[in-house]
């Protein structure tokens, strides 16, 4: 991992079009601003990990009772 030291209001540039700026440092918290092209998704890592785990948990298991699956996806909107 590349480690860089920055002060408040200093910036890191990633590639030609992504900028990460240190906006505020307070105790153990750091507020950062990110400028990136709209099509580049930016997420908090813990949120991404949460969704990743939810997706994996949502996989239809091979062991799932086929009849149960049919019942489920045959349900109509309430």
């Amino acid at each position: 991992m590349l480690v860089l030291t920055r002060k408040r209001n200093e910036t890191i540039r990633i590639g030609s079009n992504i900028k990460v700026k240190v906006l505020e440092v307070s105790g153990s918290y750091v507020k950062i601003g990110i400028e990136a092209p709209l099509e580049i998704p930016v997420y908090r890592e813990e949120l991404y990990q949460k969704i990743l785990e939810e997706n994996r948990a949502s996989l239809i298991s091979r062991e799932l009772d086929g009849q149960y699956l049919k019942e489920v996806i045959s349900r109509k909107a309430g």
Binding site: N55, S58, L59, I60, R62, V72, I73, S74, R75, A77
Partner: peptide, 27 residues
């Protein structure tokens, strides 16, 4: 999209079809 059911569909990878999940259309 499941026949006669506007709510639930199945989403699965074309390359790895066992990567499949149920999705619900936003009501």
């Amino acid at each position: 999209e499941v026949k006669d059911n506007p709510l639930f569909s199945l989403l699965y990878s074309t390359d790895e079809p066992d990567i499949s999940m149920i999705i619900m259309k936003c009501p």
